[in-house]
Nucleic acid binder design. Structure first.
Length: 387
DNA sequence: TATCCTTTGAAGGTG
DNA sequence: CACCTTCAAAGGATA
């Protein structure tokens, strides 16, 4: 596939949206676990790596037999592993108190959820999930097969309303989705001709993705370009009322803000959200599955599971999401040429920003205090050129 | 009610 | 350039 932005142009001028970090992530993926547990240098860094790998291995490596070699959870005492997993300062203390919340206890019933985050225990079946070979067939989307005995076949507790862009490459047999989802993406003509090239997914893994794409084709999305709003307009998922509640239409709000000043009206302009990155897209798709499999509802816990699953994905699988995320960014840039991520800076009030800095001594990244994409070795895989 | 938690990635800011 | 910070989603937990 040629470079999607070969046309150069792009409204923002940032033509090549292929994020260099993607490459690192690809390299990181796959080899990460072994490298981290075996080859990484000794010393504090190794401890961090070991801690990280332990978190992965706790759920992956403890399976009967096919455990990941190296420092797996199997070699650790419960207390040790628990201490490591819980060694996330205050965060863990809140999330994983002495007594597990009921939701987590329930979650432990499902092997997928029996990660070492909560308990270092025998949850061997979970490893089966983590070691499912990635679907070799193109077009298979990256979802581990649910265990036969669990509730994967049941509807998710809450099926997030994914934007068609996210859904368009989702599982053909996902948890029951609202009927309107399919309606949204039914033969909607592409109204942004200059974007059509981005979605002519004809080669590579992305070519297997459904070709009808996305929120930007919806008439309502033309609001930015002056096209009259469609009566049944659906807000762009990236456009959110300042309240943060997507369900709240700015039109409704205006009814009761009749006397508000212009400044307030100005402040109430919908917020243009950041485009989702690859992992966010992955989470969007897989969250419902994890919820169904684990009977978990806490997003923090779910995200941890998804984070491990993300690393367990093959590079091809991840490439789908990186590619999709790149299109997202490209599209976002075209829809909102002047938009910058900086626009949303400071809009989220942080309660304890100092606390973060204290506890992490620089960088509030993950529990390992590392920047995964930057800690990774040079890339060996160039998805953008391949795709 | 607002923010936190938790994850990875992207992007902006800073030295 | 390297490092740090913020935000993107999400929903239960918490202040």
């Amino acid at each position: 596939m040629p470079q999607l932005d070969s046309g150069g142009g792009g409204a923002g001028g940032g033509d090549d949206l292929g994020a260099p970090d993607e490459l690192l992530a690809f390299q990181d993926e796959g080899e990460e676990q072994d490298d981290k547990s075996r080859d990484s240098a000794a010393g504090p860094e190794r401890d961090l790596a070991e801690l990280k790998s332990s978190l992965v291995n706790e759920s992956e490596g403890a399976a009967g037999g096919a455990g990941v070699p190296g420092a797996g959870a199997g070699a650790r005492g419960e207390a040790e592993v628990g201490a490591e997993a819980l060694g996330r300062e205050h965060a863990s203390q809140r999330l994983f108190p002495d007594k597990l919340p009921e939701s987590l206890e329930d979650g432990l019933k499902a092997p997928e959820c029996a990660s070492g985050m909560y308990k270092d225990t025998v949850y061997s079946a979970f490893n089966l999930l983590m070691h499912y070979p990635p679907p070799s067939g193109a077009g298979q989307h990256p979802q581990p097969q649910p265990p036969l005995h669990n509730k994967a076949s049941q509807p998710a507790h809450s099926v997030p309303q994914l934007s068609p862009l996210y859904e368009h490459f989702s599982s053909p047999h996902p948890t029951p989705a609202p009927a309107d989802i399919s309606q949204k993406q039914v033969h909607r003509p592409l109204q942004t001709p200059d974007l059509s090239g981005f979605y002519s997914l004809t080669s590579g893994s992305m070519g297997q993705l459904p070709h009808t794409v996305s929120w930007f084709t919806h008439p309502s999305l033309m609001l930015g370009s002056g096209v009259p709003g469609h009566p049944a307009a659906i807000p762009h998922p990236a456009i959110v009322p300042p309240s943060g509640k997507q369900e709240l239409q700015p039109y409704d709000r205006s009814l009761k803000t009749q006397a508000e000043s212009k400044a307030e009206k100005e402040a109430k302009k919908p917020t243009i959200k950041k485009p989702l990155n690859a992992f966010m897209l992955y989470m969007k798709e897989m969250r419902a599955k994890v919820i169904a499999e684990c009977t978990l509802k806490e997003s923090a816990a779910i995200n941890q599971i998804l984070g491990r699953r993300w690393h367990a994905l093959s590079r091809e699988e991840q490439a789908k999401y990186y590619e999709l995320a790149r299109k997202e960014r490209q599209l976002h840039m075209q829809l909102y040429p002047g938009w910058s991520a900086r626009d949303n800076y400071g809009k989220k009030k942080r309660r304890s920003r100092e606390k973060h800095q204290e506890s992490n001594t620089g960088g509030k990244r993950n529990a390992f205090g590392t920047y995964p994409e930057k800690a990774a070795a040079p890339a060996q895989f160039l998805p953008m050129t391949v795709l």
